[in-house]
Amino acid sequence: MTEAAMDLEAEAAGVVKKFMYVNRKAPYGTIYALEGLEVVLISAAFDQDVSLAFLDDGVYQLVKGQQTKGIEVKNFSPTYRALEGYDIEKLYVERESLEARGLTADQLLVPVEVMGRDELVRRMEEQDVVIAF
């Protein structure tokens, strides 16, 4: 059993742990972003303290206006807006990654908390479990 699975089992005993999912990949070139999002949705059932971090190319997952008809791939960007209904409200975006890509928070499709690298690293270090995609 992986460490993450054991941590999920600990929830059965009523222990709430801090889980952070780290998203570092752009949405369609690889399957990581979609798979990561599905894991987050599934894990929401375990009532843990979940946060999502978007850094490096992961910030591209949240860009408004994605239209995937032409590449015949499912556009999963609207699903990020469903996270709130799953009680996943801690979305952290690294400021340096946004700036390097010429993006601003108002160009993203969900409300997020933009923070500098140092602050993001500090939050990462507070976690019980960090899972990266």
């Binding site: 949705l41 059932a45 469903a82």
Partner: peptide, 15 residues
């Protein structure tokens, strides 16, 4: 239509 997923039962109930 709005979110491109079928909601989990807990989310459906709440919504």
């Amino acid at each position: 239509n709005e979110y491109q997923i079928a909601p989990a039962v807990r989310v459906l109930t709440k919504a």
